[in-house]
Computed example of a mutant assay.
Amino acid sequence: MAVFNHIVVALAILAVALLPATTIATDYVVGDGSGWTIDYDYQAWASNKAFKVGDNLVPPPNKAHTSGHDIISLSTPGKMWFLCGIEEHCSEYNQKLAVNVKAYQLMMIDGDDDDDKDNDDCAISIETCGGGNGVFVATDQFQEKEEKEILMANFSHIVAVLAISVLVLLPVTTLATEFVVGDSSGWTTNFDYQTWAKDKVFYVGDKLVFNYPKGSHNVYKVNATAFASCTVPDPSTGLTSGNDVVTLIAPGKKWYICGVGNHCSALNQKLVINVEGGAPAPAPSSATKSGYQILMGIVVVLALIILV
């Protein structure tokens, strides 16, 4: 259940982060009921609207068009300018429109910079009503500049998606570790367990696995005094299965000895470790691993959808 809740929370975070990319585009009929005509205040019409990449303007297109029902898809962020190229419709009758298109990416591109020389040049172009012979003309002096801006916005979005994916999937890399005591030698006599342990970091939640032939050895958890003197505690407290697993449930020093004969005192069959706090998550069950694999697949799919 905890794993399921973790996946749900992770998907919710991803949904919030990627929601702008799934927003349905809006069709704006320029001038509403009046359409694209003369003697109409298109700047007042546009002033209360929020144009986004992916929205559509009807009728002005991105080049000269004459269909009477011309549609332009706003594919890049920044300022865009449109005018009518028939006779004096622009210069005398104010048939022109400027809109500011916002990127839906996490890093917003704001093209409304009155101090930008390029914007001034394009504004001059629309103010003087120059720019083409068609009926609807859009100034496109900044295509290269806008392409660079959208590329930077997309890059920032990619970075954000990857960062979210790393945070969501981080528990996979912090799962509890199982340490087989002595590695392939297992739990035996005449082995230097302190050398084995010295380059390892043990955390709360990790597990120690003591492997040995059943009946030949055993495992006792003791205190520092009993460890130093190899004093064996009550036999009922020993582990004797031959595949004993000890979960490290608290930080601090932990001492273990073998209670068979002189295995501890003469043959050095004892181990002391230091357990760090701040434990990783418990070791994963097969369900946990499957849950994270499914989650990773969903993250990859969502990222691909965003990038296409």
Score class of each variant (00 low, 15 high):
269 Q>V: 10
174 T>G: 06
140 D>W: 01
53 V>I: 09
305 I>V: 14
210 F>L: 11
298 I>E: 06
260 V>T: 14
121 D>S: 10
245 V>S: 10
28 Y>S: 03
18 L>S: 15
67 S>G: 15
198 K>V: 13
169 L>A: 04
307 L>Q: 12
16 V>K: 06
192 D>M: 13
140 D>T: 13
190 N>E: 15
42 Y>H: 02
168 V>M: 14
115 D>I: 04
73 S>I: 11
97 L>P: 02
9 V>A: 14
178 E>T: 15
259 G>P: 07
172 V>I: 15
81 W>L: 08
195 T>V: 15
200 K>N: 07
263 H>M: 08
42 Y>M: 06
282 P>A: 11
97 L>C: 02
164 I>G: 03
169 L>V: 04
146 E>F: 02
94 N>M: 15
172 V>S: 15
3 V>K: 03
37 T>K: 10
157 H>T: 10
188 T>L: 05
135 V>P: 01
237 T>R: 00
287 A>K: 00
87 E>I: 07
146 E>H: 06
239 L>T: 00
8 V>N: 07
28 Y>Q: 03
148 K>V: 13
218 N>G: 11
64 A>W: 12
58 V>R: 08
201 V>F: 02
193 Y>I: 12
182 G>I: 13
60 P>A: 12
9 V>H: 06
237 T>W: 00
35 G>H: 10
46 A>P: 07
22 T>H: 09
25 A>N: 11
160 A>I: 05
46 A>R: 05
83 L>T: 09
289 K>F: 01
155 F>D: 02
261 G>S: 15
144 E>Q: 11
193 Y>D: 08
280 P>A: 07
125 S>K: 06
149 E>P: 01
208 L>V: 13
260 V>G: 05
139 T>E: 13
239 L>P: 00
116 D>S: 05
99 V>S: 02
290 S>N: 07
96 K>A: 05
170 L>H: 06
304 L>N: 08
235 P>D: 07
132 G>T: 05
34 S>C: 03
292 Y>A: 10
115 D>G: 15
120 D>T: 08
160 A>P: 02
103 A>Q: 02
269 Q>S: 07
148 K>W: 07
190 N>I: 13
158 I>G: 01
185 S>T: 14
5 N>F: 10
252 G>S: 07
28 Y>G: 03
134 G>S: 02
39 D>C: 08
277 G>L: 06
144 E>G: 06
197 A>C: 06
96 K>P: 01
21 A>V: 05
252 G>Y: 05
280 P>E: 05
35 G>C: 09
228 A>K: 00
295 L>Q: 14
274 N>K: 12
265 S>G: 10
138 A>F: 01
34 S>Q: 12
91 S>I: 15
214 K>P: 04
101 V>W: 03
281 A>F: 09
216 S>E: 12
54 G>S: 07
69 H>Y: 12
208 L>Y: 09
80 M>E: 06
307 L>W: 09
186 G>L: 04
53 V>W: 00
144 E>W: 04
283 A>V: 11
238 G>L: 00
142 F>L: 12
48 N>M: 03
66 T>V: 11
104 Y>E: 02
8 V>C: 05
21 A>Q: 13
132 G>D: 06
124 I>D: 13
51 F>D: 09
33 G>V: 10
239 L>V: 01
117 K>D: 11
138 A>M: 15
300 V>N: 03
